[in-house]
Simulated scan of single mutants.
Amino acid sequence: MIETVFRCDELPRADRFDFWREQMAKLMAPMEMSTEHTADFRGQVRILEVGPAHVWPTKFHPMTFRRTPKLIRQSDPELYHFSFLEGANLQVSQAREEAAHSAGGLYVVDTSRPYDCVAFGGPPQGVGLEIPKALIPVPHDRIDRLLARPIPGSEGVGALLTGFLSRLSADSGSYRPSDGPRLGAVLVDLATALLAHAAESEDAVPPETRQRTLFLRVRNFIQRNLHDPQLTPAAVAAAHHISVSYLHRLFRAEETTVSAWIRQQRLDRVRRDLDDPGLSAVPLHELAARRGFSHPAVFSRAFRAAYGMPPSDYRQLALRSRAPDAPPWRPARGEPRRQASSLPERPAGVIDRQCTLPCS
């Protein structure tokens, strides 16, 4: 991904707000801006180019934005701008709708129509998302009903979108430029599904978008319920009101089965726990039980098959790798001798971070 960062803290105080206003007009859309903090204005923005979408982690002093008909005629990028507020109080008005928003809130505005936004209280902080209107297949007259109004961001598809934005913002340095188009497609799908759901226009969403969104919801559900030993394909399918056979078809494109994916997610979580020095005193069977393994022997066999050594040896090697002056690691009786300089390689496709879904 391409990332651009600008902040005005290092400029002379008298120049900061003018600089901010100029940059925002270039990077977003021309707007009238005013603030009571011109003498000591502070603001920072990162712009992540994610395929056709742009993600905006930002924080700034309270101010007022106004998009007027004149400025729209001057320049209109024809975008839907989503705002997820992580710490803010805003009053937003557009299309004869006016609503107050606070931390945890989510709303959308249309850059082709006039709007006002007043930030007050503490410094607003959050993540913006801009997507070309042409990429959203939901009828625009349906979306018009949603403009400026609060959209649930802590449940359902809204939680998927806000969680994805937060994780993407936090991990931006971990991605390659080639990841941008794929991550951008996920953002467009989630935004489309959210608007369609909020506008009760699911019939307007292409089948492939509905299927990809459902797959993300299923994966998120699994990751949030790994602790449950009764997390089976049948339970996952029932929670999403689909058949088990359809659930298996969703995972077929991933070249794995539902059960195998659940098992690997559990193993990966336990492996991370074994890497954590703060959990070194927790018995292995307890760590396994926390991740849904109810039978220690089954867990031990699965771990050895996945990582090439028993979990006890993995923990010992992980802890000793963090202690450079410790004596050499010795394998358990009957185990082949291994190099202590590095931990075993993970199976292909297993990563520490799920880059396409917010992890719990």
Rank of each mutant, 00 (worst) to 15 (best):
D141R: 10
L319E: 13
P152A: 15
S341R: 15
D40R: 04
F19W: 12
G104R: 05
I242G: 01
P311M: 10
R291I: 00
T64L: 02
A193Q: 10
L214I: 01
V258R: 10
R291F: 00
K59G: 09
R42W: 04
Y115L: 13
S342G: 12
Q230H: 12
A237I: 08
K59D: 03
E3Q: 14
D141C: 03
R291V: 00
D171W: 06
A193Y: 02
R322F: 01
R67Y: 06
L287N: 05
L343E: 04
Q23T: 12
P52H: 07
E10V: 10
F65R: 05
H54F: 07
S294V: 02
A332M: 09
H285M: 10
A239W: 02
V138L: 09
A148V: 11
E98L: 10
C355H: 06
D171K: 04
I351L: 14
S300N: 14
S245F: 08
Q94L: 05
A191H: 05
E49S: 15
A193I: 00
L195M: 05
A198F: 02
Q74F: 09
P139V: 01
R145A: 14
L147A: 11
V298M: 13
R149H: 03
A134Q: 14
G156I: 07
W56P: 02
T356R: 13
E3G: 11
G51A: 06
Q44F: 09
A234K: 14
T162R: 05
V350P: 00
S243E: 12
R224W: 08
A103Y: 01
R337N: 06
R182K: 10
Q94D: 05
L317W: 01
D313R: 10
H81V: 13
A170T: 06
Q264G: 00
L247H: 05
T232R: 15
F299G: 08
R13A: 15
D276K: 03
P328V: 12
P139F: 07
R353S: 04
T58I: 03
Q91Y: 03
V109M: 11
Q125F: 01
F19P: 01
G180C: 03
P139W: 05
A100I: 04
R142T: 03
E254H: 06
R212I: 00
A281Q: 13
A14K: 14
A103L: 00
I47R: 15
H54A: 13
L287A: 06
G121R: 11
D352F: 02
R271W: 01
S93E: 14
H81R: 04
M24L: 15
E335G: 00
L284V: 09
Q94P: 01
L279H: 11
L190D: 08
P327R: 12
I72W: 07
K59F: 02
K133L: 09
P331R: 15
I131T: 07
H295C: 11
P150Y: 11
F82K: 02
D189I: 01
V92R: 04
R330G: 03
L226N: 01
N220D: 13
V236I: 13
G173H: 07
A53P: 06
F19H: 13
K133I: 15
V244C: 04
F17D: 09
A198G: 00
I143T: 05
E86S: 08
M1E: 07
N89I: 02
D352S: 11
L267F: 04
